[in-house]
Nucleic acid binder design. Structure first.
Lengths: 191, 191
DNA sequence: TAATATAAACTAATAGTATTAGTTTTTCAA
DNA sequence: TTGAAAAACTAATACTATTAGTTTATATTA
């Protein structure tokens, strides 16, 4: 009567990611996920420790995907073009995977090793893009904070419909990155 | 047996805002709110149409508060100082009212008149701060999008603990706004 | 190959959430 | 003072997560 659905952690996370992008982050429930996988919800506990762990796994998965597209965007480009490329990759990912993108920030379980590792890798990638500007050790960190703020803010506002005006969004992002690069000297420190 | 708790919409929203800041947005439940107000949860339906409407009211309330502190930050300042002032006001509000701030963006009911009105007023305020830069009609809109992205991104990442590094946050924000101003010419259009 | 152990499914039950329907009771106004 | 409206209530339904305990399929091992 129960011919083994053959589930595992990976399958759950992939299905949950679909759910997130289709229904939004709040649509990721164990009940929904179980229904989609053709199983009763308590069965999911054989593979995952509950909703909280599922959300953490989803966050790690999302960060890995995000890292992948950002990293891929950098092949063969450098300097200003690299800043633009990684920015477009970030925002495009957030647009194409709105639910999954949301989970990457609503980190429910802090202190999680994999989560912090995935975050740290992304950080390093952004640092590498900015290394050409000779910003200094702490200046580099200010600059990374700045770029992350810009990218998350733009992505989130666009995804939530925060930009009401009928004005080209690509153009807005390009200009915002251009202005960031133009003013990047303000980040420079002497260390 | 039920001596009239004397509730009204205003009271509910104020209590819900406290709840939001204490427990986070997901802690704003009708059950929690009813308990805090000393009433059974169905009683809340006499004043509010359900959780969705409560969230919308909370969003409007939050936007009004945000507008108030941004507006207050501008008295007696102009030019670059005004950009810094409104930015600090925005980010400080988000820090002091993390739950309420979150509700202002998770707009559940789009097409809501009050919500759009509150958003539009905030938009106008930011535009007024940037009007001295002669950016052109659409340039101004690009610039507003940019500043909003920066402010929301910075506020959200800080509130969610996204900035792990032990590096002064005030300094990061100041530099980010300085760099925004330094590069604002990239927003300029000829209209 | 057959027996057994493990793991993955299940059912049943509990507790929390929103919401609706219908009832009581307070309060205000005619 | 009587009556109507509003604000509380209880009861019930339908979701959600989660735990406990049971069955059964699969894999391992004798």
């Amino acid at each position: 009567m129960s011919p083994r659905a053959g589930l595992d952690k990976q399958t759950l996370v992939l299905a949950a990611a679909e759910l997130a992008d289709e229904l939004g982050m709040e649509g990721v429930t164990l009940a929904q996920l179980a229904a989609r996988l053709g199983v009763r919800s308590p069965s999911l506990y054989n593979h995952v420790n509950g909703l909280k762990e599922l959300r953490t796994l989803l966050a790690v998965f999302g960060l890995e995907q995000l890292y992948a597209v950002m990293s891929a965007s950098l092949v063969g480009v450098s300097g200003e073009a690299a800043v633009h490329a990684i920015s477009r990759a970030y925002v495009t990912f957030a647009q194409q995977h709105p639910g999954l993108y949301d989970t990457t920030l609503q980190a429910p379980e802090q202190g999680n090793a994999e989560l912090e590792e995935a975050g740290a890798r992304t950080l390093q990638l952004i640092i590498s893009v900015l290394s050409g500007y000779e910003l200094g050790r702490t200046g580099e960190l200010h600059a990374v904070r700045g770029l992350r703020s810009i990218l998350h803010g733009f992505a989130a506002l666009r995804n939530k419909g925060g930009f009401g005006m009928p004005l080209d969004l690509e153009d807005s992002l390009t200009r915002l990155i251009d202005s960031y690069i133009a003013g990047i000297g303000c980040m420079r420190t002497g260390d």
